[in-house]
């Protein structure tokens, strides 16, 4: 029963909130440019419309192109099941941890990259090749920063880590978590194709990475890819907010109202981080492609310093 409730809550929250995050980021960016911008719920309308449209499929492509949207979407959703939105609605144990989370997302990325090569389009190859570089460079800092938190919490399971983080008071008062927070924030920008790494709004071949891989998709396939990407973005945001800003220790009540309150607090945190991401996009410019290694190195160094502070320089005694 607990497991079913968990799965239902998790899927509903993640699927409903993820397009909203994109809406908020676009709205904030529009305001910063003195525009009114599209409605907050625009992505829902887009998805709904795309689902109803027919698909155009390249005549060069094979089955790899058609199965990819389903695999990409389902890996994103499976990854979402590994990262609880609230510690109140959780099962006994989630059979998956941060290492599996990374591997699950890698499965989706693998298929997205081969699908981009499947249509024999130059754009696809370009996006795929760039994604290969970015993912290779950012992966070490994802695992090192998650490992650092995991080692402090004595578990690699996201659920156990969240439970342990509830007892740490305000994590951001400890230097480890400041480093991990900054590293994770940079990772979010890179993994979710945000400026300064990639520009989600562009279709210019010189700059696009993620969009280049989706270029041949249309109709329901495109909708699945877009929704999958949005879910993946929310998964990363959830990892960040639920580790560094734990909220369930604040809730004194129990029962169904506690669940509602917990989800409400979660939503507030997600909105806060979405606005922060939007500000990061507004105040930075897109990096030259070969400057991305510097950003990845920065992120890695931050997570590594966090680790050093706690496990080598005696931060655990503070």
């Amino acid at each position: 029963m607990r497991n079913i409730v968990y799965i239902v809550v998790q899927i509903l929250v993640i699927m409903l909130v993820s397009p909203l995050v994109n809406g908020i980021i676009r709205k904030v960016k529009a305001f910063s440019q003195k525009r009114k911008g599209a409605p907050l719920l625009q992505m829902y309308f887009d998805l709904f419309k795309l689902f109803k449209k027919n698909s155009v499929v390249s005549d060069v492509s094979s089955w790899a192109f058609k199965v990819t949207p389903y695999i990409f979407f389902s890996t994103a959703l499976a990854a979402a099941l590994l990262v609880p939105v609230s510690t109140i609605v959780t099962p006994q144990e989630i059979p998956g941890d941060i290492i599996m989370l990374v591997s699950v997302l890698a499965l989706g990325r693998f298929f997205m990259m081969i699908a981009a090569l499947d249509t024999a389009s130059t754009f696809g190859g370009m996006g795929s090749s760039r994604e290969a570089m970015i993912s290779s460079l950012i992966e070490p800092s994802i695992l090192v920063s998650l490992f650092t938190v995991g080692l402090i919490c004595q578990s690699t399971s996201m659920q156990q880590m969240m439970e342990a983080m509830k007892g740490t008071g305000i994590p951001l008062f400890h230097p480890v978590y400041i480093m991990v927070f900054l590293a994770l924030f940079t990772i979010i920008l890179a993994e979710t194709s945000r400026i300064p790494v990639d520009d989600p709004a562009t279709h210019l071949e010189l700059t696009m990475v993620h969009e280049a891989m989706l270029l041949e998709y249309s109709g329901r396939h495109l909708a699945l890819m877009e929704l999958g990407a949005a879910i993946k973005q929310l998964v990363f945001i959830t990892v960040l907010v639920n580790l560094i800003f734990p909220h369930d220790q604040l809730i004194a009540i129990t029962g169904i109202s506690a669940v509602v309150l917990s989800l409400f607090l979660y939503l507030m945190k997600v909105i806060f981080i979405s606005i922060a991401i939007a500000f990061a996009e507004v105040f930075t410019v897109k990096f030259r492609f070969f400057s991305i290694p510097n950003l990845a190195a920065l992120s890695f160094i931050l997570s590594f310093l966090g680790f050093l502070q706690y496990f080598v320089l005696g931060g655990s005694n503070v």
Binding site: V102, M113, E139, P140, S141
Partner: peptide, 15 residues
């Protein structure tokens, strides 16, 4: 860190 990078680059190589 090395295992992580190796994993991602191995995936890229096989892509």
């Amino acid at each position: 860190a090395v295992l992580a990078m190796t994993g991602a680059m191995a995936a890229a190589s096989f892509v």
